[in-house]
Design a protein around this nucleic acid. Structure first.
Lengths: 331, 331
DNA sequence: ACAATTAGCTTAATCGATTAAAGCATATTT
DNA sequence: AAATATGCTTTAATCGATTAAGCTAATTGT
């Protein structure tokens, strides 16, 4: 491993102090009041020697690592994978490096990741928090570490966040179903106290006040069994004419169940899904779904966090999503 | 932001030098020959003050960041997302932090990521290299930075790697198709010089030497159009009775096309896919596919890299994959 | 012409941990 | 009694960059 070039090497070669070199290369010429020729020479030699500043030394001195920690709720979920990718791309534009973790919807895991990341001295967090993780979020805030929640937030925690307009888009989407003539709706969501889940439910309820409908809650940890039995009930007892799924994981699992039990969509039963999935393309009829602005969520979260890292002020952002009713692109 | 506790604080509180504290807390008591009581006291005070060592200072001094860089070929591909997750989990066990990047199959992007990661002074790399990226890999090796390739490797580059037994498992899988009575096979792969792609093709060729078969190559950048036209040819001209897809992205895109054109699987045409996809569950008949040992690939890559980071020796590993012919779990 | 500025540069402390080398008792050997 | 060894601890340099404060000589103001 070749010895790296340091400020000292440049200083030595020219015969000036490291201070001058530092002033010039970190763009603080005015502050150091460096002579024009000297500055030019320093820049030239730096280029010659292919000088690369040592991030670590810089971090030690400044206390800033230019690293942010992203903790998504479940990285195996394409929704979050896309978020992760976009956050990474966007943060790179700001000169930030992202380290990613997945809490797998577990508070315990989130806690560990937060600890590891804090030890790594990340400058800020972007987190999509699992259920009942308020305390951890508040802990981060209490340490004065900038944080921006994404996709989910807590109503009673004063933090920055970027989320989708869950209630409105759900209400809008369900209204669209009603407009199509469906009169007996089932809503399947996770049993969760998270605001985005409550909002989606409220959106459903607001839209269905005039018709018959049922709300079913699945426990995340036992979703496999519970989803199956829930759909059984919906098909055989409630005899709903359409199911509304509150998340993409529920949508995919639900569609899988329906397909495997040869329930024809939309003839036997229609569905409405929240968030996109690749599997929708495998149905002959378009799957009605709410498409969240994933890229935008990610980008905005980085911007908000970045601003918060320099200035102090928090920011809350609610983005609109889009109802997809027919698009179907042939491969 | 509360001031963090440093070695100095502990030393000051007890009235010893920071050297002693360092010896004790970094587990080098013998080396520093620290008195038993003093050591005990140091440990106790460290716990009291909730001392957390400063990674950055440590890195600056030791030149080790305990960070590895993982660069996958395409993070939006569930195969690589799983790899990323498993690598992250596994590296955590070794006390390593992972920073992840996606080259999106672009040599240029890989180059940038490698530069960024080297600036960040990662201790090692795990990379699934895109086509024609030998030079970048060799560059990393020339810098003396430990690296382990994953999923793909270059025959003529002497590096550590972990890959699947692509040729054998493809040959085996195709033989199974032949055993089922298929006699006119089409093989769809990416146009690539990467070893794993060549191996899969060779496996196909070895298995089909006695029957009629055709090999089709798709350009990654224009796969949408080319795949469609290729399948057209296979259906209308070659009139194959089964298609073998070389990767999961090709499989999913191919299945999508077939579904949308109402080609019934396996009645009209059967398929054999390389690697798993969630969409297989949406077919009534099981989709025959080769299941790669993703977790194991990831784990082994970390282990190999870790070993390489302490000792010097390279390691090449070829893992067996599994042919899935019927499994179908009801949701 | 003499004080006050200012331009240009250096000194040296600092961030927090590591570690070779040296210091100083006390104990043991010769 | 001198020499050596042993046990415990401190000193101080180091990693590489940042930055307040200080210094000198040239320039400006009155």
């Amino acid at each position: 491993m070749v010895k790296k070039v340091s400020l000292k090497d440049i200083a030595l070669k020219i015969g000036v102090s490291t201070a001058l070199v530092s002033y010039v290369l970190s763009g603080n010429e005015e502050k150091g009041r460096v002579g024009k020729e000297t500055a030019e020479k320093i820049r030239q030699v730096a280029k010659e020697l292919n000088y690369q500043p040592n991030h670590i030394a810089k971090s030690l001195k400044t206390g800033k690592t230019n690293t942010i920690g992203l903790i998504v709720a479940d990285i195996s979920n394409p929704f979050f994978a896309s978020i992760a990718r976009a956050v990474e791309d966007e943060s790179g534009k700001y000169g930030l490096t992202t380290i990613i973790g997945s809490s797998d919807e577990s508070t315990e895991k989130l806690k560990n990741l937060v600890e590891v990341f804090i030890k790594r001295q990340v400058d800020g967090f972007i987190i999509s928090p699992p259920d009942h993780s308020e305390e951890i979020i508040e802990y981060i805030i209490s340490l004065g570490i900038p944080i921006c929640l994404i996709d989910r937030h807590f109503d009673h925690v004063n933090s920055s966040y970027v989320v989708t307009d869950n209630k409105e888009s759900m209400q809008n989407a369900v209204s669209h179903l009603l407009g199509m003539g469906y009169k007996n709706l089932a809503f399947i969501a996770y049993n969760s106290t998270l605001q985005h889940m409550k909002d989606r439910e409220q959106g459903f309820l607001d839209a269905t006040s005039e018709i018959y409908s049922q709300v079913y809650k699945i426990n995340f940890s036992k979703q496999h069994d519970e989803l199956a039995s829930t759909i059984e009930v919906i098909l055989n007892e409630q005899k709903a004419d359409a199911i509304v799924f509150a998340t993409n994981t529920l949508s995919v699992a639900g569609l899988k169940y329906l397909t495997q039990h040869e329930v024809k969509i939309p003839q036997d039963l229609n569905v409405m899904c929240f968030d996109f999935s690749e599997v929708y393309d495998f149905f002959y009829h378009p799957i009605i779904h709410v498409k969240q602005p994933i890229e935008q969520l990610a980008k905005e979260s980085v911007t908000i966090l970045f601003n918060q890292m320099k200035e102090e002020h928090l920011q809350q952002l609610v983005l609109n999503s889009e109802l997809i009713t027919k698009t179907r692109v042939m491969v």
